Simulated scan of single mutants.
Amino acid sequence: MDVNGYRSDGVGAAVALVNFWTVDNASPDAPPVTVEALRELLAPFSFLTRDLRAPEVAQLAEWGTELRGIFAADELEAAVGLANGMLERVAMRPRLVDHGYGLHVHYAPSGVPFAERVRINTAIGLANLLAEHGIERSGVCAADRCERVYADTSRNGRRRYCSEACANRANVAAHRARKRAASSVAD
């Protein structure tokens, strides 16, 4: 179980929160976000989502919006500055625990509210990602008109799109553009 590296649940949760708050629910016409919707969003990232309370929804919205800056940063220094600012504002108390998953590190102090656990884990996950790979493994999708973010956890680290669908659309569009250019040269 890799809980400390860039493949940790904190990085995945950061991507999910940013896309949820800054793309999927960014429109003023979007329906209000429910606690249940946020629990469903964060459940795959090993959080005890039953602890999420309604007042924390707004805190997580603000945090998701703030996290976007790290993904959108064009320079490592800017991303590091944002990450360090976030790390300064979370109360970490790392400790070793074993509750049936093997010995591993928890960064959040025992008993902190759910939103603070999410803030701590996403901040440390992105800090580890930056420390290990700089800004080369994260960013905003390269597809036209897509604003979703991604974090690359693959072996080769060449991802530039938020999803296979965006990558496929971009590749098809590039192929068609090359075909049009070749046919106009031939005419």
Rank of each mutant, 00 (worst) to 15 (best):
E116R: 11
P113L: 04
S110Y: 11
A91S: 14
A83L: 08
N84W: 00
V112P: 05
A78G: 06
Y107R: 14
G100D: 09
A73I: 02
E77K: 15
H106T: 05
G111V: 01
L82R: 14
H104S: 12
G111F: 00
L82C: 08
R93Q: 10
N121I: 00
L96K: 03
A108W: 01
R89Y: 01
F71T: 06
H106S: 05
N121M: 03
F114V: 04
N84G: 12
M92V: 14
A79D: 02
A83E: 06
V80E: 05
R68S: 09
M92Q: 11
N84P: 02
I120K: 06
G102E: 08
H106D: 07
D74M: 11
R117C: 04
D98K: 13
I70R: 02
V80T: 14
R68Y: 03
R119S: 07
E77P: 12
R93N: 10
G69L: 04
R119L: 04
S110H: 11
V90E: 04
R68D: 01
G102K: 07
F114I: 00
I120T: 07
E75R: 15
M92T: 15
G102H: 12
D98F: 08
L82Q: 14
A79F: 07
V80P: 00
G111C: 05
V97H: 02
A73S: 15
N121Q: 11
N84I: 07
E88V: 11
E88R: 15
R68V: 00
L103R: 12
D74F: 10
R93P: 01
Y107I: 01
A115W: 04
L96F: 11
A108E: 10
R117A: 05
P113Q: 01
E88W: 10
G85I: 06
L76W: 10
N84R: 09
V118Y: 01
N121L: 09
N121F: 00
P109Q: 12
P113A: 07
D98P: 07
M86Y: 13
G69P: 04
V105K: 04
E77Y: 13
F114N: 00
V80L: 14
F71E: 07
P109G: 15
P109T: 04
V90C: 05
A115P: 02
G85K: 10
D98W: 03
F114R: 00
R93D: 10
R89N: 13
E77S: 15
A78E: 12
